[in-house]
C-alpha cells in the first residue's frame, strides 16, 4: 500500500467522520470494513466517494459496491 495515499485516505475518512460527529480513526488497516468497523452509513459513503473523487478523479462506487479499505486502494491503484 502506498503510504502517501494511505495518509490521504485516512485524512479524508476523518473529515467525513468529523462532519457527521462520529469517532475519528487513528490508524487505517486494509481489512477494515467501511460500515462495520469504521461506522460509515450510506450517506457517509457518498461523501467519502465524492471527496476521494475530488482528490484522485476516480469514482470508487461507479462499478459496484466497495466494502473494505483494501478495496478502495485496489480501485485507486487499478487506474
Amino acid at each position: 500500500m502506498d503510504n502517501k495515499m494511505e495518509v490521504k485516505i485516512l485524512e479524508i475518512m476523518n473529515t467525513v467522520l468529523d462532519n457527521r460527529t462520529k469517532k475519528k480513526l487513528t490508524v487505517l488497516s486494509p481489512e477494515m470494513h467501511l460500515r462495520n468497523d469504521i461506522g460509515f452509513d450510506s450517506l457517509d459513503l457518498a461523501e467519502l466517494t465524492v471527496r476521494i473523487e475530488a482528490e484522485y478523479d476516480i469514482d470508487i462506487f461507479e462499478d459496484g459496491i466497495v466494502n473494505t479499505v483494501s478495496e478502495i486502494f485496489e480501485k485507486l491503484n487499478s487506474k
Binding site: N19, A46, E47, A54
Partner: peptide, 9 residues
C-alpha cells in the same frame, strides 16, 4: 449537484 453539495458542505 448533491455530490458538489457534499464536497462543500
Amino acid at each position: 449537484v448533491i455530490r458538489q453539495m457534499l464536497l462543500h458542505h
